[in-house]
Amino acid sequence: MVKLKKLSEPTPETLGPLVMSEMTSERPTTSLAAPVVGTDRSSLSADEMRNLRQKVSAQGVDFFYGSNQALHNVSLDMPENLVTALIGPSGCGKSTFLRCLNRMNDMIDDTIVRGDILLDGVDIYKSRTDVVELRKRVGMVFQKSNPFPKSIYDNIAYGPRVAGVKQRGVLDEIVEKCLEQAALWDEVKDRLNDSALQLSGGQQQRLCIARALATFPDVLLMDEPASALDPKSTARIEDLIFELKNSYTIVIVTHNMQQAARVSDQTAFFYEGSLIEVGATTELFTRPTQQQTEEYITGRFG
């Protein structure tokens, strides 16, 4: 069987571009108007996306919590270096689907997955998959920021350390690069040894993103990463997603449709465990083909 790629040594390429982003947020972030699709990005059509390299591909995925089926035959392709947003009313299985992609559901007892999930063409549910290796390649950011009760430095260095990186110099470099990528370096560079729990909520969440970047993943899963944050912090996270998408394939769950419209290239609408519709974000929000999708995005239910 194909063994998943080993963690490569950090090189400038794998570390991705540096992001020294000062806030560039003149965009309205809290508007309650109909979703405005961001224009500062290439808008690809669904057909164009189909022809891209599919980084992650779910094929006929069913998921069960015990006898309760949470996903019904979900098939979804996530193209490389694009942002895929998962939307839908709460309880429709978005988080469940996201957790299938890095096998975090394995941690929950008594669950069953059926169907195939391919990462770079390799089925991650094959019995010989190294889950630890998989999770290094598919990073995850949680809804509630969950920094370790350790220093800022140790939070970032934890991933590389468990992967076997020991040299202080290399760790220092990774910490700096990842914090820069997460647009947090300038705020914390003078207090790397302070507890991460002293940071503000928004900073903590960016720290969690930086921490996820430190294992050099290809794919970044984000489960409502901004839902607990104030609008300004939310805007910063969205800016960050914009920057990161050049080097990562991002899958983001959000219940905020403006956010989906702003940050994503492709949007998938889930309802009661089924994937109802998927398409280029621009098209899905302007010309939904399914009635349920239309009702949801116009706010008639959910």
Binding site: V132, N146, F148, P149, C208
Partner: peptide
């Protein structure tokens, strides 16, 4: 959430116990 964060970073069970749970 601490366990989740640790496992999601590719830590093994042992690394999670030794690196996160015991200190905490």
């Amino acid at each position: 959430t601490i366990r989740q964060a640790s496992y999601a970073l590719g830590a093994t069970r042992w690394q999670t116990v030794w690196g996160q749970l015991l200190p905490a």
